[in-house]
Amino acid sequence: MALVTTTEMFKKAYDGGYAIGAFNVNNMEIVQGITEAARDLEAPLILQVSKGARAYANHTYLVKLVEAAVIECPNIPIALHLDHGPDFETCKSCIDGGFTSVMIDASSKPFAENIEITKKVVEYAHDHGVVVEAELGALAGIEDDVKVSAEESHYTHPEEVQEFVEKTGCDSLAIAIGTSHGAYKFTAAQCTRNEKGELVPPPLRFDILDEVVKRLPGFPIVLHGSSSVPQEFVRMVNEFGGKMPDAVGIPEEQLRKAARSAVCKINIDSDLRLAMTGTIRKFMAEHPDKFDPREYLKPARAAIKELVSHKIVDVLGCDHKA
Rank of each mutant, 00 (worst) to 15 (best):
L65T: 03
V31S: 09
A134E: 07
M284D: 04
P77G: 10
A112F: 03
H224D: 09
L3E: 07
K92W: 10
I71D: 12
P201R: 04
M284Q: 14
T5H: 05
V200M: 12
Q190A: 13
S149A: 14
G52P: 08
G249F: 01
G17M: 10
E152V: 02
A183C: 11
F111N: 06
P299S: 07
L136M: 07
A259C: 09
H154G: 03
F88C: 09
E143M: 01
F240I: 01
K51N: 13
A57N: 11
K243V: 09
E123V: 14
S153F: 08
C94Y: 06
T277L: 13
S153Y: 08
D207A: 06
R294Q: 13
P203A: 14
T187C: 14
D105V: 06
I280C: 11
V263K: 01
D314H: 07
V313I: 13
G16R: 02
R281F: 11
G33P: 02
K119T: 11
K92T: 06
E133H: 07
P251R: 10
K12D: 14
A262P: 00
E198G: 01
I78D: 04
A37G: 06
S153D: 13
S172V: 03
G21W: 00
V212M: 11
P201D: 09
V121R: 12
E252S: 07
K120E: 15
P158D: 04
P217A: 09
A2Q: 12
N24M: 05
D144T: 13
A140G: 15
T5Q: 06
I76C: 03
N75R: 13
N194W: 09
P220D: 13
P299H: 02
D96G: 04
R205I: 12
H126S: 12
K120W: 07
A68P: 05
K119C: 10
G242R: 14
P220W: 02
E133F: 08
E36C: 01
A262N: 10
E159S: 12
L307P: 00
Q48F: 02
L272C: 05
D269I: 00
L297I: 05
A300N: 04
S226P: 00
V161I: 11
A176M: 08
L272N: 11
A259N: 01
P203H: 14
A275M: 10
V308A: 01
Y184H: 15
G16W: 03
R193H: 10
S261I: 01
I304G: 00
Y56D: 02
P74D: 14
K311P: 00
Q190P: 00
L209K: 01
F111H: 07
A302I: 11
A106G: 15
H181W: 03
A302K: 03
I280M: 15
L47I: 13
H287S: 04
Q231S: 06
K64R: 15
A19S: 15
S50H: 04
E8T: 12
